[in-house]
Design a protein around this nucleic acid. Structure first.
Lengths: 236, 236
DNA sequence: GATACCGATTGACGCTCGTCAAGGCAGTGT
DNA sequence: ACACTGCCTTGACGAGCGTCAATCGGTATC
């Protein structure tokens, strides 16, 4: 409340679109007084796979990636979390340890909410649970979709699809009216996100560039023909 | 209530493990009086992808497969539903049309619960929402896991993994103390479930048989070395 | 400005897996 | 007994993709 960068829950930009928007004033005050807010740097982690789950996190501005490893050394980037997203509540509700690692991918501000507070709020306000349900239904549906795609799509199409999804989340029009996108991910992370090797991503990039669909320059992407892009994605 | 095979919600075998177990007597009576119970044959469907969602289904004994198609003719079997599972509530909560097709895979008994009843019960009993949340969290976690596997595992390992999962759900010991499993799926459906072609499944079968891990005879499966099986799965 | 370093790209090669086509096998109908 | 039909299996081939290794930037360090 007194730190110069601190933002209260009442003023939180992400609040209206987050699960917490159903809280009344008292409940929001409880949340606000018990949460721990901290800025976090890119590269640090909120929790590691296997850690105990002591509470949940709420992302204000920033970007967080959810990773999963296995004993054989395989790694995958399962999804990206945007401002307003609540992170780690699945492990909380399952009363299990974290099954994934949450990694900060851009400088972010994150609030930690202790499990006791979450429990209290869930008991006091049934709508909070329904909001979590709503959110989780969307996440599950998204996973279902991604699973289907990874089964039926080629790497190139999964890549094109990812570009479209990222464009909807991070893209904009530049001064020339072109659809541009600053990728928030390295090539390696793109590869880990769609289940491919970085080399294959590179080759996909040169191919779609040769076809004149998209222009790449580092992490700058210009989508030159969105209609043709969506057509190619849905064609198989 | 008067059909000779009809089972009331009070006597439903699946009830204790279903979401509805949190209902009190009045609520259960409402559920019981408004539900529509019907036996369904293998091969029929509960709903098709694109149908309006007028309510949700509860599976008593039986097996239901959730399928997804796309415009290019690709098809995948996303998951299997067991007795006690509530089916179609995601589309219900999203207020969207069904995004998948629910196909009966074994003779089953299914109860249909109209959306108005579900809405009433969700409003009356907050715990019902939390039960749905719990269930959906498990489903989402399962999808996350499957997604990870389809990215990092080979077809053979995904197949072995599926055998283990099916064994836990449908397997038993025979008179010789062997771990046996009656597959509830055709080869084609196995292929559609793990994202492979039927031919590749066939080849995987002959390979694991040559390695002496598993014996196949039609849909009869004998797991001969479960330890080695789990070792191979986690090795990569 | 020289060096080291990390991410991205490109090439070569091989394996996995999908596709197409040809049987085999059990169940069903005539 | 016959063909017919679905489902499964097997073979041959090729495309897609992963792996290994070399190279090419761009950026930080001294």
């Amino acid at each position: 409340m007194n730190g110069k960068q601190s933002i209260g829950c009442f003023d939180c930009q992400a609040h209206p679109s987050s699960e917490w928007c159903v809280l009344d004033e008292d409940e929001l005050a409880l949340l606000n007084s018990t949460k721990v807010q901290k800025p976090v740097e890119a590269g640090s982690t909120l929790f590691h796979q296997g850690d105990n789950c002591d509470g949940i996190y709420c992302l204000e501005p920033g970007l967080v990636g959810i990773r999963r490893l296995d004993s054989a050394g395989n790694t995958a980037l399962l999804r990206l979390c945007s401002p307003g997203d609540t992170i780690g509540y699945r492990s909380f509700l399952l009363k299990s340890e974290h099954r994934t690692t949450a990694e900060i991918m851009m400088p972010s501000i994150v609030c930690f909410i202790h499990r006791q507070t979450v429990r209290t709020l869930l008991e006091r306000n049934p709508n909070l649970g329904l909001r979590f349900l709503d959110h989780n239904v969307k996440v599950a549906t998204d996973f279902e979709e991604r699973h289907f795609e990874s089964i039926t799509f080629t790497v190139k199409n999964r890549f094109l699809n990812l570009l479209m999804v990222l464009y909807e989340r991070f893209g904009h029009l530049n001064e020339n009216g072109e659809s541009v996108l600053e990728l928030p991910l390295s090539r390696q992370d793109i590869a880990a996100l769609i289940g491919a090797s970085p080399e294959t991503i590179s080759r996909s990039i040169t191919r779609v560039q040769d076809e004149g669909l998209v222009r790449f320059k580092g992490r700058q992407v210009v989508l030159q023909d969105i209609d043709e892009l969506t057509r190619q994605i849905s064609a198989s």
